[in-house]
Design a binder for these strands. Structure first.
Length: 260
DNA sequence: ATGGCTGCAGGATGCAGA
């Protein structure tokens, strides 16, 4: 089972490239972030024509997440639990039947948090604490689950081409990294890092200042796996090709293969 | 570098992103 995550940075602006990539990569499940679209404006037919079920949790103008799946969706849920006042569309999860039982897949768009010292960073930390509570609950149930998405977290210095440039950024704050490590310490596995310890693998390159051409990137799009899911991990790869395409997203797809 | 691009809403330019 191939599970991909991709911050598409505007699904309507990116529809041709998105369809081309889905056709080529053929993920079983695709988690999208930053669709920047209300549900009714999401170009669902383009993906349904490729044989995908489409579930969205959109919002006009910015944010917005989606799950596309070749498999039937047994359950769908929108919004990260823990704050009824949170109106930002950043979380959707689906449950699928697989031969061993069930697998839960979440598509999440963790808040950026910049600038440091702002309420946006407070919101990010609160959101990460809610994500930890969510993970704890599903770990306690011993579920096979995957939390995939744009975490807006640079976990370690080797996940940035120039870590020193990110020292004062919300993505690399000690408190941000600590919260990410807390997730790992619960027993979750960073799928990509389980497959390689090499530095220099990135999932985002800024549009500005020739970041792509200079390979000035960061790795911020992750799959975190529960122990039963990690036991089934076969491979993880970052598909850099799309960053060189016409009108690219600034993020590229990350794809894992699970033997389920 | 002073955010140097980009998408979106709206119908000019401001906001958000990382």
């Amino acid at each position: 089972m191939r599970i991909a995550t991709w911050n598409i940075n505007g699904v309507r602006a990116r529809i041709d490239g998105a369809v081309a990539w889905v056709r080529d990569a053929a993920p079983d499940v695709l988690c999208l972030q930053e669709i920047k679209s209300a549900d009714e404006a999401f170009p669902r037919e383009a993906f349904e024509d490729l044989g995908y079920n489409v579930e969205t949790h959109g919002q006009k103008g910015f944010n917005g997440v989606a799950i596309l799946s070749k498999l039937p969706i047994d359950e769908i849920s929108r919004g990260l639990p823990g704050d009824d006042e949170d109106v930002q569309a950043r979380f959707i999860e689906a449950v699928f039947s697989v031969k061993g039982g069930a697998i839960r897949v979440a598509s999440l768009y963790l808040p950026n948090g910049n600038p440091v010292g702002s309420e946006k960073l407070t919101y990010k930390y609160g959101w990460m604490d809610r994500l930890e509570a969510y993970a704890r609950a599903h770990l306690a149930a011993e579920e096979t689950f995957v939390m995939a998405g744009d975490y807006n977290v640079i976990p370690e210095p080797e996940d940035a081409r120039h870590p020193e440039n990110w020292r004062d950024d919300a993505l690399f704050q000690p408190e941000t990294r600590q919260r990410f490590r807390r997730l790992l310490n619960l027993g979750l596995t960073d799928a990509f890092r389980a497959c390689t310890t090499e530095p220099g693998h990135y999932s985002f390159w800024d549009y500005q200042a020739g970041a792509w051409q200079r390979n000035n990137g960061i790795r911020i799009d992750h799959h975190l796996l529960s122990p039963p899911a990690a036991d089934r991990l076969v491979s993880a790869m970052i598909d850099k090709r799309t960053r060189g395409w016409e009108k690219p997203s600034d993020h590229v797809p990350v794809v894992i293969e699970l033997d389920v």
